[in-house]
């Protein structure tokens, strides 16, 4: 495409990942080449076991590839030490998980504030921004509830707010709608899209939720650890809603 002027925020080169399970070696990723532009909304699609979660972990710096490199903002992740990696995870990337992964002992607000605390933001400022973020995701009235007191959708909203806390360049969402019902899943997807539009944050989402296709700029199809095809949204015509795919 004619996107020469746009800068890359994530670049993956020859990404291989092997898991050794007893005597067998499982090749989860087999030479992934993927470039993602700043401000894009990318969905990584594929059946379970295709390696999309593994790719997600590589991009997020949560695991190390067996070979190949991942560049985030043109920085080679393999070159980073533990402190730099923590810095990167804290400020550059925001994570959203299928299982929400909120800290159970903390309230919604405290969960959102925590990454800012790690980033060294003063307490008052962090709390102020935390409240603001929770309002954005529509939980202004649920600030002091513990995760157990919130519904799944609400918890995922808190997770979204938390992912945005330090103004990251990228939001990595691993099956963000996997544990939610259709309606709430849709809301979360719309929320992510809105954040992508309004805040200009790059969203990379690993999913097999076809609702994502409708709003994604690009869809990366993965099968057996390899990229099957990359589609631009304008190239596909999909009648979203007509496909009854969700089993939940």
């Amino acid at each position: 495409m004619a996107n020469e002027k746009r800068e890359y925020v994530v670049r993956c080169k020859d990404l291989y990942k092997e898991f050794v399970m007893g005597d067998t070696v499982l090749q989860a990723l087999k030479g992934i080449q993927l470039d993602i532009y700043r401000g894009e909304y990318v969905s990584i699609m594929g059946p379970s076991g295709s390696g999309k979660s593994t790719l997600f972990n590589m991009v997020g710096g949560l695991d190390k590839p067996t070979s190949g490199t991942v560049f985030i903002n043109d920085v080679d992740m393999a070159q980073l030490d533990a402190q730099e990696l923590a810095y990167l995870r804290c400020r550059t990337i925001g994570y959203i998980f299928q299982t929400f992964n909120l800290i159970p002992v903390m309230t919604a607000l405290e969960n959102v504030v925590l990454p800012m605390i790690f980033a060294g933001v003063p307490q008052d400022e962090a709390v102020e921004r935390g409240i603001e973020l929770l309002k954005i995701v529509g939980l202004g009235d649920r600030l002091h509830h513990k995760p157990t007191e919130l519904s799944g959708g609400q918890q995922q909203r808190v997770a979204c707010a938390r992912a945005l806390a330090n103004n990251p360049a990228i939001i990595l969402a691993d099956e963000p709608t996997g544990n939610l019902d259709l309606k709430t899943g849709k809301e979360i997807i719309e929320l992510l899209r809105r954040l992508n539009k309004e805040q200009g944050v790059t969203v990379i989402s690993a999913t097999h939720d076809l609702k994502m296709i409708d709003i994604s700029d690009r869809i990366v199809w993965i099968r057996d650890g390899q990229i099957e095809r990359i589609e631009n949204r304008e190239d596909i015509e999909l009648k979203v809603g007509s496909v009854e795919h969700e089993e939940e």
Binding site: G60, A86, C90, P115, R162, N166
Partner: peptide, 14 residues
């Protein structure tokens, strides 16, 4: 473990 993993994702040091 999950909580620890999450904390590390949010930028906690070992």
């Amino acid at each position: 473990f999950k909580e620890i993993g999450t904390m590390k994702c949010l930028g906690a040091l070992d």
